[in-house]
Design a protein around this nucleic acid. Structure first.
Lengths: 121, 121
DNA sequence: CGAGGGTGATTACATGTGTAATCGACAGGG
DNA sequence: CCCTGTCGATTACACATGTAATCACCCTCG
């Protein structure tokens, strides 16, 4: 699967949320703080098409865009990449790191414990 | 803290493992499969210096390089970034994702449970 | 003393990315 | 039927990144 750049990812998020959309619709839904012009969004869409992570179908004179890959798949790949690179593929090392950095609230801990317990059955 | 590119990260790994080192030493320790020339490693070192994530001290006619940032800090930042972007900052969502993808062995589960239990005390 | 090898610095060049402007085609309003 | 706005496509340009080659300098060996 092609790598998706940070900015491009923002466009994918929009389409994973709702699809199909026109270029203008996507632009309208991209987070405000990006401050992107419509032209910029169109460039992103073209590049994502070229990467094969989007598809488009004609709708009269314009296109409707929709994701060609599933969000879970992409997220899984990126998470795996990070865990491999930074934690030698060891998930417990990641969790230990998060714990050491206070990224785990008591609620998080409880939730994760429940998840793990469910896994063992 | 400056972003560190994928290739540059490989150089940082070497120096986090052992420092200080000369450019030639770093090149010798970079993973074989990168297939980098010494020149390439030197470019990386210059860029990392420019980014302020390395320091160097003179050793006669050459430099000894050493990390200016701690590995844990960088790793924490990158992990946080990923969790924020892909899981809305929710660590349990990440763990659920890993579970769904069979990235968790029974040993991992046991280890994580032990970690979490220790946290609660 | 002169040549060769090692050093960092400078330069090179292709590709990716952020961020658009512009262009040619076409559709719909007047 | 023509103007204007809209669409995708093409082009632009600066900076980041991967991957080096080359240069100027200096130390050491012969």
């Amino acid at each position: 699967m092609e790598r998706i750049a940070e900015g491009e990812y923002a466009v994918m998020e929009v389409l994973w949320e709702e699809a199909p959309l026109t270029a203008a619709d996507v632009a309208a839904r991209v987070p405000e703080d990006r401050g992107w012009s419509l032209a910029t969004v169109k460039t992103m869409l073209s590049r994502l098409l070229a990467k094969g992570v989007l598809t488009h179908e004609e709708d009269g004179r314009r296109y409707l865009y929709r994701p060609a890959i599933r969000r879970e798949d992409y997220v899984a790949e990126e998470s795996g990449r990070l865990i491999d690179r930074m934690f030698g593929g060891r998930v417990p090392a990641l969790v230990a790191q998060l714990a050491a950095r206070d990224r785990l609230t008591p609620a998080d801990i409880a939730e994760i414990e429940k998840l793990l317990k469910a896994l063992k059955s």
